[in-house]
Write a protein that binds this DNA or RNA. Sequence first.
DNA 1: TTGTAGGCGTTATCAA
DNA 2: TTGATAACGCCTACAA
Lengths: 342, 342
Amino acid sequence: MQKTGQPTINDVARIAGVSKKTVSRVINKSPLLNGDTRLRVETVIADIGYIPNPQARALALRRNYLVGLVHDNPNAQTVMNVQRGMLEGLQGTEFELVVRPLNRGAQSMLSDLRYFLERQRLFGVLLMPPISENESIVQLCREIGCRYVRMCSVSLDDDAHMVASNDREAVRGAVAYLIEQGHRRIGLIAGPQGFRSATERRAGFEDALREAGLPLQRSLIAGGDYTFESGLVAAERLLDLTPRPTAIFSSSDTMAAGVMHAARARGLDIPRDLSIIGFDDTPVAAHVWPPLTTVRWPTVSMGRSAALKLISGVGEEEELVEEPSLFISTLIRRGSVAPPID
Amino acid sequence: MQKTGQPTINDVARIAGVSKKTVSRVINKSPLLNGDTRLRVETVIADIGYIPNPQARALALRRNYLVGLVHDNPNAQTVMNVQRGMLEGLQGTEFELVVRPLNRGAQSMLSDLRYFLERQRLFGVLLMPPISENESIVQLCREIGCRYVRMCSVSLDDDAHMVASNDREAVRGAVAYLIEQGHRRIGLIAGPQGFRSATERRAGFEDALREAGLPLQRSLIAGGDYTFESGLVAAERLLDLTPRPTAIFSSSDTMAAGVMHAARARGLDIPRDLSIIGFDDTPVAAHVWPPLTTVRWPTVSMGRSAALKLISGVGEEEELVEEPSLFISTLIRRGSVAPPID
DNA sequence: TTGTAGGCGTTATCAA
DNA sequence: TTGATAACGCCTACAA
């Protein structure tokens, strides 16, 4: 045993009376191995508490047992949820999670990421939206041989590289619920341009109107950028309309909170005078008054599945469980929706 | 150059006509080096774009260029803020951030952490509250030679190992503000037992009352665990009191949101009938109605400073900027406080 | 089925 | 001030 106290492959080999390579084979579950030998080595490993050194493996394999989460922080809670899901998926494996925020706006974004991936020789990365939509980033991953899974509001890639939510259908359902309640003048606060999630959610909104035979009025659509302030401003514009919309679908909870403030500032009661539905189900949704009806997408599950996809085929022994690629969102009905009064 | 395309130290040595060790000395800024040689080597390094391989260094040095964030996820936003701060501090260095959540309740917590730290040979870790208060964890770090910085609501260690907020004083100030507004019956919703932050905030609350010569009534203190539900329940108990408190200080924003719901359920208007102050300044504070007056602690700055402390003395060249150890919180005045009406 | 030799890219030792 | 040589702990190729 070394002075560091950590037993190495040499210690195992010596004690078990075999060569290093044999130990290596045991560790890596090589199929061509005598059962006896394997058992003997495994016993020694368990006995002295040997753990393979990840740094040495990384050097020899030219590949690190590190999985990355690359994101652009649109929403802290969402990032944390995905992170938690990934950690669940990585639980019990030899992989660790490395988090890497990126600045979407920066010129150097691509080179930053390349530097990071090449240097650390990540095993794989989960690309969160909206950067998962950037094809040159995906191209980079392919180029340098880094596994990747993309997370997005719609499928953009094959199943092995994708965890997608069904934003369009989810929003369609949410708006259909509003229509069911009797609403006919429904406003939309859309997400920022260039975000696939914004496009999908808007499409879902339009789907619902079309299905119900309701006209699509441009004036009832306002743009936002997922922030509270943008929701506030957009809502002010919509609430200035005559006749006023009786309901608003906001493409994010945070913007929905802005809508609530705008409504309150005009003395409108929610949901009596205005119904609101948000998207995300972040903590704020449950904590505002009235509690916000919203669309919840399974961020934790998506993170977990993505992690499992990233490392699939590594442990060999682990069943090749088919991880899903499409994740269904659900409408969480709380107190911000009621039938219109007029 | 290897087939991988990444130039190695050997390439540099060959081209510069020196030995590997000399290149190594240049990389590591060894002082005993001829200026000419250094310049020549540096030129070659820049020319061919050589980047030292972190895995190889980790193996040779028995130490990884990885910094960990160990937390127990009390609050997603707080964790994200700290994480962001750390990444700012690590920006431009060779260090990467690894995130590691821990389950405070689990029996295996300590062994989980040991396994993680020993295996990955982390350079250092930032311990977030409340696990930063666990002395056996700190002991573990010392034992295995992993640098650490503790983040807490009060100083628990020497400056090199500490970033502390001044919760007690901050809460004292917040409650003093309530008293200034004319409140005399002020309720406290305390944090969970065993959390240092809970103790500190409570102490600050008591300080303020004492200073103002107000009696400390046990009945005006309710316990919570930082969750929304616990805040709701605690507030219900306080609001059942006769006479009712005219103000409540809640030890977290999330609990404060619960207080708001409880107040609303009784038809109380905030801040007319009840003033509320929270703690954390999470997004929910700004988004509830009325916007919550709260205490903001500089989580991002604390993360940044902690990261800088962790890696201080590594780059050699970088100035040994004295990073602060005490961080001052500020009272963010919004709309949830008004003078009492009775 | 198992072992030997050599390499992964870096740093440490010690001599020149 | 520099350089040869040997770690660091593991894996691949090839041989036995």
